[in-house]
Design a protein around this nucleic acid. Structure first.
Lengths: 224, 224
DNA sequence: ATATGTGAATTGATTCACAGCG
DNA sequence: CGCTGTGAATCAATTCACATAT
């Protein structure tokens, strides 16, 4: 009984397509930095490690951006992808949970360059309240509802322990946050109009465990 | 032209299934901690936020673990999942790149409890070599090939800057590492017998951007 | 000539319905 | 009688082939 539409798509766009668009955008940024002006779906594909069919199909969901016989203009395709991904403005984000990970993210310099602005940080621990990390001061969790409103916080990073994750998710969604980046290794339930993306390195590590262990069990195909 | 079979499956197992098994395992651990002894696919499903069909199908890929009319025994299903996922032994891991993120991971206490043992850390920066983080001393990257051999390092965490990621991936694969947990926001190329899992919070953040921005554009279904 | 854009075919994953056991 | 296990059906995503535009 999957509540809401957690991992679905807004329109008819495969969410794998969205992930690949992000990769294409990175490749285009790299090409542009290298002074390259034009690119074919073939080159884009090999840089992104997907097929050229896939590149063209992914782009076709959103429009037609190339010139037949010629390819794509790097800068304009890059702009189109930024527009499609909603990266033409800065998003206002807050960190909930100022443990090791929350602190590391607050100190991470790259984020403001990359379309995201860290505007607040919260923790339950009163000893941390008032301390500064990176560009923000830690506030008490009690202040969250007011701060979300005042600072227009759109996205919350959940960097709290597993047992606090659901409570924190409830708090931020109640306050009106519509996007959650969940770093806690657990599933969180949210209302249907809230989007959760998980960043779960322990799960990724366990996937590695599975595949390495599998490969060891059956080294190659055709065991007979 | 997707080289190797980067995101494929070893046997015929969907990789989404593997991800869900990890979630089921977490749920089972939680239930066991709470003293629950038996569980139905329905309960497991609702805790994992998937359908009960999905739970049963996922399990069916690997065997038959339940009792009809009764459900599953929490502890034995948990053991089966650990076995399936290759989590019956500790995996030996190393961190490559001791910047902020590498340091945070080295200090992370939970890992050794969770089937992974951090046995080494590397950095190119000679000023960091010799320093200790968590339980390991930082070594020079030059020592990597020898250390992989001596310490039997099976998995490498890539926590280096984007521009160093491919070089680092080449170094660890050349040294014989078969699993990479890539934290750098870029694709890395590896030989076909090496598995890469990406942990990419900037990509997750941009997916959020896409979906929030989409939802804003078309608030509900049926726009007419 | 060349490389995009796209309907059609294929492949893969999820959902369903119910047969099979306890 | 309840709940698992699974073949069949549906749904979704990827791959392909080629018509189309420059």
């Amino acid at each position: 009984m999957p509540r809401g539409g957690a991992r679905g798509t807004s329109k008819g766009i495969p969410s794998a397509t969205v992930s690949r668009l992000i990769t294409y955008l990175r490749v285009l940024n790299g090409l542009e930095a290298g002074g390259v002006q034009r690119v074919s779906s073939d080159l884009l594909a090999s840089e992104a490690q997907v097929s050229a069919f896939q590149v063209r199909k992914d782009l076709a969901y959103f429009g037609t951006f190339g010139t037949r016989g010629t390819g794509y203009t790097v800068s304009s395709l890059r702009d189109e992808l930024k527009r499609i991904l909603g990266l033409t403005r800065q998003w206002r984000v807050a960190i909930v949970g100022m443990g090791r990970l929350g602190q590391a993210i607050a100190d991470y310099p790259g984020m403001s360059e990359f379309d995201f602005e860290l505007v607040a940080a919260f923790d339950v621990d009163q000893r941390k309240v008032g301390r500064g990390y990176g560009t923000v001061l830690v506030r008490s969790l009690d202040e969250l509802p007011a701060a979300v409103d005042e600072l227009d916080i759109e996205i919350a990073f959940l960097t709290v322990p597993v047992k606090a994750a659901q409570v924190a998710a409830d708090a931020v969604t109640k306050a009106g946050v519509k996007g959650i980046l969940n770093f806690a290794p657990t599933v969180v339930s949210v209302p249907a109009d809230v989007r959760v993306e998980n960043v779960d390195f322990l799960a990724a590590l366990k996937r590695l465990s599975y595949f390495l262990h599998e490969d060891a069990a059956e080294p190659e195909e055709s065991p007979a």
